[in-house]
Design a protein around this nucleic acid. Sequence first.
DNA 1: GCACACTGTGGGAGCGCTCCCACGACTTGT
DNA 2: ACAAGTCGTGGGAGCGCTCCCACAGTGTGC
Lengths: 351, 351
Amino acid sequence: MTPDPSARSGPATLEQVAALAGVSRSTVSRVVTGSPRVSDAARRAVEAAVAELGYVPNRAARSLATRRTGTIALVVAEPETRVFDEPFFAGIVRGVGAAVGRTDLQLALLMTGSDPDGDPDGAHGRARVGGYLAGGHVDGALLLSLHADDPLPRRLVDAGLPLVIGGRPDGADLAVSWVDADNRGGARLATEHLLAQGRRRIGIVTGPPDMVAGRDRLAGFREAMAAADRPTPPEREAVGDFTRDGGERAMARLLAQAPDVDGVVVASDLAALGALQVLAGAGRTVPDDVAVVGFDDSLVAASAQPPLTTVRQPVEAMGARMVELLCAQLQGEHMLRHEVLPTELVVRASA
Amino acid sequence: MTPDPSARSGPATLEQVAALAGVSRSTVSRVVTGSPRVSDAARRAVEAAVAELGYVPNRAARSLATRRTGTIALVVAEPETRVFDEPFFAGIVRGVGAAVGRTDLQLALLMTGSDPDGDPDGAHGRARVGGYLAGGHVDGALLLSLHADDPLPRRLVDAGLPLVIGGRPDGADLAVSWVDADNRGGARLATEHLLAQGRRRIGIVTGPPDMVAGRDRLAGFREAMAAADRPTPPEREAVGDFTRDGGERAMARLLAQAPDVDGVVVASDLAALGALQVLAGAGRTVPDDVAVVGFDDSLVAASAQPPLTTVRQPVEAMGARMVELLCAQLQGEHMLRHEVLPTELVVRASA
DNA sequence: GCACACTGTGGGAGCGCTCCCACGACTTGT
DNA sequence: ACAAGTCGTGGGAGCGCTCCCACAGTGTGC
């Protein structure tokens, strides 16, 4: 029995398109993959047949033949919980999703979630993800929120997997592309805004010192203060950790150490919320007694009391740029790139 | 030249495992896929070889042979922007991600984003996604945030794609499984809480009437009021739309129509924020003059002034349950299931 | 005039896997 | 004792695609 290629159910195959267009499988394949070596007549016939049959290439078959998967992974080295609660991650994921949508790549979302049943540090998840990525299931990976001691990027670089990291990695020795926001410039902007308003005794609630973004923001703050010839005394620098609670504690300390503070740069909006609460509890009005600038322009910023002046990171653009950099690598570009995207001050009522 | 299967580079194949274990390809395949018809000796030999070579099955090849992809899609029929800004979506995605991580399925995230360049209603994105899903690239799909007129679910049902919808679909005629939160019960809870506090002239700011969740919440409110023998007069029901602005406008109207209102159930936290602002502007204190209950327990609820009493939806559990229902379908269960997960009142300062 | 490109095309092989069928070695019932 | 199972196993075919090579047809240079 000769199988009749035109009378099959299910999705159409190359063979059926070829039969309908009156050309060979190879020619159809060339048209579909965009090869230039096809005559106009053949191309038109194939295109018509593709449209008529609603042909969509079978990804699995293509992948098997090309040893490429058409899929890139977005790996977030965090428990699922944080990924979506924090507007930073959410924005990145959004930008990545949008950019991937513009290509014909697929996005696989991998979170090295801390398993609730007895795997607090996510080692299992990390191993699973590592195996998956190194096992040839994706053409490249986007890595987000790396911790300084994470072995994953090194492992993937060694496996030869194209990689782009979101956020400048700690330790510059890793040969890998990355995209970051201008945290330092943003903090400078925030500080200069306070200075321009005539604030003179400006303090900072920093992020955690073991995170690059936190350190960069602190550096920007110090730079701006130094440039204005007002280097900050240590008692006006309180170490926080990006969370609301951390912001509360750090602001309380700052207020105790430097009661005359009249402006404060806080390293995250969440922490700024905590700071606002402490200030209100201490009877200081914002912005009259103390001006407050946050960082991130997260959802909560606009609905804070008073609405937060804050530094916006181009999170979506960062996500999109990461995808673009990865695509360039997939197309054979071997140059490493490091991009720093500009941040922007959003002025509201708090400063 | 006979190719030596043990001397290949790149990921190991079945054939290599078979050679090392001294059995046939078929036997290795049986072990890997967990078929029971393998002797213990063979199984042990294969497992040792798999471990030694670090063998991971090639997904593309398996998919090609089985006509299954091992991938499920999470489709959010919304622009990317809303997906991550709204805690509801974020929570669902989180739950889905976690549940998928527990299986050996892959998650493909598809957003029918409204293309910024001239495709305001996302028709292009929707068509793209529809083709992708119907084209056999995924084994099943999770659909979120459907609008009443969305042709996608019907198209997918017709194509025979296993489907689970998040949120009770509008129009009960679609033969498809879904998971929803108990919106009605949650609104009842909120209303009963106000009643228990001695509030007697309770109003509501509803969601948009064309969304099922909004209608269900209104129904729950009315039920609780009727059960307490206090059916609500129309002037204490103001139509809103889940957004902050909508909440503001509706609250202003409600206050104008029923100035003596002493409690209000608001159909979303965002809208409740708007309501709080209007109440403050009108010189009413919350909760003393007017008690306010929101809905969603979103991030902004805790940081509102005063912190919002609100109804929490089990968003993560919903996401996880959607995955479980879909998995059951993939394993051949044909029963449609409709599950309503319980909501919970979170008492804070506003009521 | 012939050797040599270069262009468009078709067909074969093979990517790594699963499925199906066939086959030998046991077990079991009569 | 022999037919009729079962169980574990091996090998062939084929999933739909891309890649490589072969080949006919048409220029181009000497």
